[in-house]
Amino acid sequence: MSLPVLLVAGLFLPLFPFSMLFNVLYARVRHPVLRGVLLLVWPQIGLAIILMSSASIPPWLPVWALLTSLLYALRALALRELGLWTSFIATSAWALVWIVLSSGASMTQLQWVGLGISAPLLLMAFLVAGLEHRFGAAYLDLYGGLAQTIPRYTTVLVIVILAIIASPLFPTFFAMLSIIIKVFPVRPSMAIGVGVVWLLWSWAGARVLQGLIIGPGHRDVVDLKQASLWLYLLLLAGLIVSGVYGLGGML
C-alpha cells in the first residue's frame, strides 16, 4: 500500500494524529442524524480505500493503530461530555480494524467488524441528542439519577453502553474476541494491548453509567415513549442476532 493511500485511509480508519479530524468534525456536527451517518459511513470509506488498493499492510502500521486505540481509550476515561465520549470510543475502536486487517481477515469480515462497532455508537448518538433535548447538555455528574427520573431511557442507555464496551453477545464482543484470538498466538504483546483497550473501554463505560444513572431522581422529565423503547430494543435485539450469526458465526 503506497504512503499517500495509507495516509488517506488513516483519516477514515483513524490513526493519530489524523484521527483529530474526525473528532473535530464530530464535535462540529450537532444533528443526531448527521452524526449517525458520520459514524456509519466514516470507517466504511476507509475500508473502501483499502479494498481499492491491493498492497499489503506494513508491519509497523498495526502498532501505530494499537497506540492510537490505546490513546483514545485512555482519554475517554476523563471525558464528561457524552458526544465527545462517543467520538473518542469510535476512534479507539476503528483503529483496531487495522489489526484485523493485518491478521489476514476477509473484506466481508472487516465490513462486519466496522458495522458492528458503528451500530451501537449510532444509537448512542441518538441517546445523546435525547439527553441534550431533556437536560440541555449530555454531561456526566451534572444531574445524575436517570434511573429514577427516566427509567425507560436508562434501560436503553445501559444496554447501548454494554454493546459499545464489547459485552456478549453484541458484534463488538465477537470483534474483540476475533482480534485477540487471531493476534495472540502470533503477536502476544499486541493482543495484550488490545486487552488493555478492552479494559479501558469497560472502565470508561462504567464511569458513564455512574455519572448518569446513579443518584436520586430530581426532575420532572419526560421519559422515552413506549414505542421508542420498543424500537430501540428491537434494534438492539437485531444487533445481538447479527453478533451471534454474523461475526459469531465466523469464529
Binding site: M176, L177, I180, I181, K182, F184, P185, P188, A191, I192, G195, W198, L199, S202, W203, A206
Partner: peptide
C-alpha cells in the same frame, strides 16, 4: 468487582486463543 473480573476475562480470552 467489575474491573477485576474484566482482567480475568481478558486472560481467559487469551487462554482460549492459545
Amino acid at each position: 468487582t467489575f474491573i477485576t473480573y474484566r482482567i480475568g476475562d481478558i486472560a481467559m480470552v487469551a487462554a482460549a486463543a492459545i
